[in-house]
Nucleic acid binder design. Structure first.
Length: 425
RNA sequence: GGAGGAGUGGCUGAGUGGUCGAAAGCGGCGGUCUUGAAAACCGUUGACCGGUAUCCCCGGUCCGGGGGUUCGAAUCCCUCCUCCUCCGCCA
């Protein structure tokens, strides 16, 4: 949420920000128009209310003194009706304003690369060397099948396309990956582990910015208006909704494993092979609530925490800074981590690390008390995947495969999986 | 699912139609004292919106959310939500 006052006073800045994110601006004009209208009415009704308050007080004094106030009371009836009517109009206008406000995206950081689409993203660095195997290698789907790790047909029978069913060693390997990542972030990186609800209310989903824009991309329950979480970002950021934190308790760092549910409406046919784009997947998510002055430093360490997963697994990856047009609705700045899948010769996004500044905190009313001034202020929120499993698994299998199709696991994973390699069944 | 009880400021908690944005305590902030700290004492301390207005000033709104009654609502009525207790059912 961008504060209405800021929008009013910085119209051109907001307009440029919306343009660079590729968001239609017609709502902005309507918004400003409604704002002017409603403020006129507000000042009108506030004057009336001031009169009413004064008169009511006088009536109270008369009654207290044991006198009658019939004449005064009779004079008030009309005023009250006017106020009621105006209040209703104002209420309606403000509801409209609120709706428009929810569609104003966060503004990109001034130094974010400007551009309309991913081709303008900036590759900051590549870790490791992107080389293809010397032998005739299999891609991740062939390896999954060969090793018997995932049964796509069974998943489809149960829930339809895009719901993989991990079997036996595949299930174990998935669990090993999740445990490895959780332990890394909790034991070495100072995150507090959370096991959150996998559903969230409309309000919570609105807070993180998934709504209203991405409603079509989410699974929703008709009878309760609940949303299956598309990422644990939603519940984790929601933990402190409507709360006031102590400055001493910042930053708060949370990590959670969750299943993530995405309808992926409109992306059929893109990257659909194997595990690359599915409706339900597992992810370990990092969320931080931080002091505003620290949020950009915290973004760097968050990114590093996510990168550490890939480093420990000895995978080749690159760090990409997103351009304005590719930034999500709520983000000001974002790094994607893309892991290299050598057989597909593709860079697969496994993590997005974003700073939302106060955008989500304003929507969720998450504040802290400043030590220096004693005043309240909104925290800054950040999140990043640390990381999502399906593409990680795809890259891992392709990278670590041997000529016969067996896979030698990275050392870091061995204690979790219990064996050093996946041999052919 | 059924029956009760409760939701008040950062926290605990008083307040059942009028000068109540709300007692008191805790906490926070400032000060006195102290080598320093603690304790004690003194003072201070709600949020949000608007008024060309980051501080002062003026007005308005806010006592779980929404609606209603009234000249006037924290207080009365309706409704929804959440929490607690008991009963039933179920993992």
């Amino acid at each position: 949420m961008i504060p209405l006052k800021f929008i009013r006073q910085n119209q051109e800045t907001v307009r440029r920000g919306m343009q660079s994110k590729g968001v239609a601006e017609n709502r902005l004009d309507e918004l400003l128009d409604l704002d002017t209208k409603v403020r006129k009415k507000i000042s009108l009704v506030e004057n009336l209310k001031a009169r009413r308050n004064q008169a009511s007080q006088e009536i109270g004094q008369l009654k207290q003194a044991g006198k009658t106030a019939e004449r005064e009371i009779a004079a008030m009836g009309d005023l009250s009706q006017q106020i009621k009517a105006l209040d209703q109009e104002i209420h309606q206008l403000q509801e409209q304003i609120q709706q428009h406000l929810l569609w104003v995206p966060n503004l990109p950081h001034p130094l974010a690369p400007i551009g309309p689409d991913p081709s303008h993203n900036r590759v900051l660095r590549t870790v490791g060397e992107a080389v293809q195997p010397a032998f005739e290698a299999r891609d991740h789907l062939d390896l999954l099948t060969l090793l018997g790790l995932v049964d796509f047909e069974a998943g489809a029978r149960i829930a339809g396309r895009g719901f993989p069913l991990y079997t036996d060693r595949g299930a174990l390997l998935e669990r090993a990956l999740i445990n490895f990542m959780l332990d890394l972030h909790t034991r070495e990186r100072g995150y507090t582990e959370i096991y959150p609800p996998f559903m969230a209310t409309r309000q919570t989903t609105l807070m993180t910015g998934q709504l209203p824009k991405l409603e079509d991309d989410m699974y929703i329950t008709d009878s309760d208006d609940m949303f299956l979480i598309p990422t644990a970002e939603v519940p984790l950021t929601g933990i402190h909704q409507d709360q006031i934190l102590l400055e001493n308790n910042l930053p708060r760092k949370y990590v959670a494993f969750s299943a993530c549910f995405r309808r992926e409406a409109g992306s059929y046919g893109k990257e659909t092979r194997g595990l690359l784009r599915i409706h339900q997947f597992n992810k370990v998510e990092l969320v931080k609530l931080v002091h505003p002055a620290a949020s950009y430093d915290e973004l760097e360490t968050l990114r590093d925490d996510a990168e550490e997963v890939l480093r420990r697994l000895s995978l080749v990856y690159r760090v990409v800074e997103l351009c304005t047009g590719d930034l999500s609705f709520a983000a000001t700045k974002c790094y994607d981590l893309e892991v290299y899948a050598p057989v597909a010769d593709q860079w697969l996004e496994v993590s997005s690390c974003s700073n939302f500044e106060a955008f989500q905190a304003r929507r969720g009313n998450i504040r802290f008390r400043r030590k220096d001034t004693g005043k309240l202020d909104h925290v800054h929120t950040l999140n990043g995947s640390g990381v999502a499993t399906p593409r990680l698994l795809a890259a891992l299998l392709e990278t670590c495969q041997q000529p016969d199709g067996s896979v030698t696991l990275p050392e870091a994973l061995v204690p979790y999986y219990g064996e050093e390699e996946l041999i052919l069944p």
